[in-house]
């Protein structure tokens, strides 16, 4: 389980402080798939970086309560551009997290190869990222995020730079691996439909300072149904969320 309690983040800047997030409460059950939607610049990425522990919150706490108290959260980040190191081969990229955990070389190589096989990249172990297509790079990034066994997966618009077909294929790929390994996922997107296709629960953030202004739990029977099936249930909630986001986008435009 992952819990953000009253998390705020303010960045100091010469033009005055910028309040990126205000009092965000977000809890995700173990194995839950949570989608964060919001207008651009609402602090979605900041929230992910806070959860990942890359930056400290200004106020509030990010916790991972377990039976024996709070443990530090192990997370795995996936970015829009994948974030594969251009100077490492696909295999070394995927094994990097394990290397940092101190897993011995033969073992981490074997584990990385297993996960690369799961995303269909077994023939590209020794290629460099520039030699792969964008879709293949994101597959490698998926393999890298799952291989370390981190219980929390943080995804920042991971497929946004892909074309629509590749986007759908990779969504299915993600869901397939996620079903097998069952991690808590916080998935940032600006696409309501994508969120409805993937998530258990949708959270809408306001324009800066980002606050959670709407929450929607996808009915059990509709969760992650195949594309094109039972689309009618989405109409109402999609409409409602779009109205909210439009209002927020207009609000942030009016301010700038």
């Amino acid at each position: 389980m992952l819990c953000c309690k009253g998390v705020s983040k303010t960045f100091p800047s010469p033009q005055g402080d910028v309040e990126a997030l205000r009092q965000v409460d977000l809890c995700a059950e173990a194995g839950e798939f949570v989608c964060l939607i919001g207008p651009s610049g609402c602090g979605k990425t900041t929230l992910l970086r806070l959860i990942a522990g890359l930056i400290p919150p200004t106020t509030g706490q990010i916790l991972c309560p377990t039976e024996n108290g709070n443990s530090p959260i192990r997370t795995s980040l996936v970015f829009q551009e994948g974030g594969l190191f251009p100077w490492m081969t696909v295999l070394d990229n995927v094994a990097f997290g394990l290397e940092m955990l101190g897993v011995p070389r033969p073992l981490r190589k074997k584990q990385a190869m297993d996960f690369l096989a799961q995303v269909g990249l077994e023939a590209f172990l020794h290629h460099f990222p520039y030699q792969l297509s964008a879709g293949m790079r994101q597959r490698a990034a998926l393999a890298r995020s799952f291989v370390t066994g981190a219980p929390v997966l943080l995804m920042d618009e991971p497929f946004a730079s892909l074309d629509t077909q590749m986007h759908w294929i990779l969504e299915e790929e993600l869901l397939r691996i996620w079903r097998e390994h069952r991690k808590t996922v916080v998935y940032v997107t600006h696409d309501v439909d994508e969120a409805l296709r993937l998530g258990d629960r949708l959270l809408v953030l306001t324009a800066r300072p980002g606050r959670i202004c709407y929450e929607y739990t996808v009915p059990q029977e509709y969760r992650r149904s195949a594309v094109g099936k039972n689309e009618t249930w989405k109409q109402e909630v999609r409409q409602e969320i779009w109205q909210l986001i439009r209002r927020e986008v207009e609000r942030s435009l009016a301010r700038s």
């Binding site: 970086r49 890359l54 997370t75 980040l77 970015f79 974030g83 990097f96 940092m100 955990l101």
Partner: peptide, 12 residues
């Protein structure tokens, strides 16, 4: 900065 985030996220 992305690469620094990735590396630190992996515990480097």
């Amino acid at each position: 900065p992305l690469y620094f985030d990735v590396a630190r996220n992996c515990g480097a």
